[in-house]
């Protein structure tokens, strides 16, 4: 025999090893961080795109009077929280969908054959995706303040809570989509047919008031509207549904999407 000192340490003690499970969560989280920091071009793209939306739309329409936005709040201020939410959502969704790349590049097998539960793996990945998304959201929020949007720094903790709920929802959704897909092409379809319409039907770009009634109803039905509204309420004091409704729907959405993501990932074959 090899006589290596570590051998007896890995003997089979219990079925569920808390230390290894915690390490698995940590490793999956850390991995997302490293990839985030190292892929500079991706980071830059992720920040610049929402920035262009913010500058293009926000500054362009700044003086416009848009029905449903109270006087005294300019469009840049209205839009900024929406763009923060949008960047959080896209960033987390990509983090979830990147499961697909891990499968494509084989790494998923290495993770799934480790003696840890899939729940820990999905949890670590979700937390990693959410952390990255929140950092990006913070950068966009700071940039919008610098451009002249009047955001309230005191609202940051509440905004962060809504952003976290949104991020968890989007990672869960992304993982669920990735688990069902054979290859990355299908993802484009989901983006165009599902995510983009939901995005426009949330309160990201315009308010749910002062629009045709049917549209207003759709926007109120769309669960994505609520975390967006919550972020806006926290940062600017302007909200259409009230913080209680925002918080309840956001939390419910996060719980549902996380459950869906974990369930789909648990059934994924490699």
């Amino acid at each position: 025999m090899g006589g290596s000192a570590g051998r007896d340490l890995v003997g089979p003690p219990a079925g569920f090893d808390v230390g290894a499970e915690a390490q698995a969560v940590y490793v999956m989280w850390l991995r997302q961080m490293k990839r985030f920091v190292r892929a500079r071009s991706r980071l830059l793209g992720n920040v610049i795109q929402p920035f262009i939306f913010l500058a293009g739309l926000g500054l362009g329409f700044r003086g416009a009077r848009i029905p449903g936005i109270p006087a005294g709040i300019d469009y840049l201020t209205f839009l900024a929280p929406g763009i923060v939410g949008m960047s959080v959502m896209f960033s987390s969704m990509f983090a979830g969908v990147s499961v697909l790349w891990d499968r494509q590049f084989g790494f998923l097998k290495e993770v799934l054959v480790a003696p840890v539960s899939r729940g820990s793996i999905v949890l670590g990945r979700t937390l990693g995706g959410a952390t990255v998304a929140l950092m990006q959201g913070a950068i966009i929020a700071a940039a919008s303040a610098a451009m002249g949007a009047s955001v309230d720094p005191l609202g940051t903790p509440a905004a962060a809570a809504f952003m976290l709920a949104l991020a968890l929802s989007a990672v869960g959704f992304g993982v669920a989509v990735a688990s069902k897909m054979e290859d990355p092409h299908g993802f484009q379809l989901v983006m165009n047919l599902l995510v983009m319409p939901l995005m426009f039907l949330s309160t990201t770009f315009f308010p749910p008031e002062g629009v045709p009634e049917a549209l207003g109803v759709l926007m109120r039905i769309n669960p994505l509207s609520y975390p967006m509204d919550g972020i806006r309420w926290a940062l600017t004091g302007l909200g259409y549904f009230g913080p209680a409704a925002d918080a309840a729907v956001s939390a419910g959405l996060a719980a549902a999407m996380l459950a869906l993501g974990a369930w789909s990932f648990g059934r994924m074959e490699v």
Partner: peptide, 30 residues
């Protein structure tokens, strides 16, 4: 060792080994 490569290509060799060891519950010194 799987038939097709199963490494995280963005990470270093050492990181790939370290992450693996953590998931198998090896303590730091070992």
């Amino acid at each position: 060792v799987f038939q097709d490569p199963a490494l995280d290509r963005e990470l270093t060799g050492r990181e790939n080994l370290d992450y693996h060891a953590r998931m198998y519950g090896l303590p730091r010194e070992i």
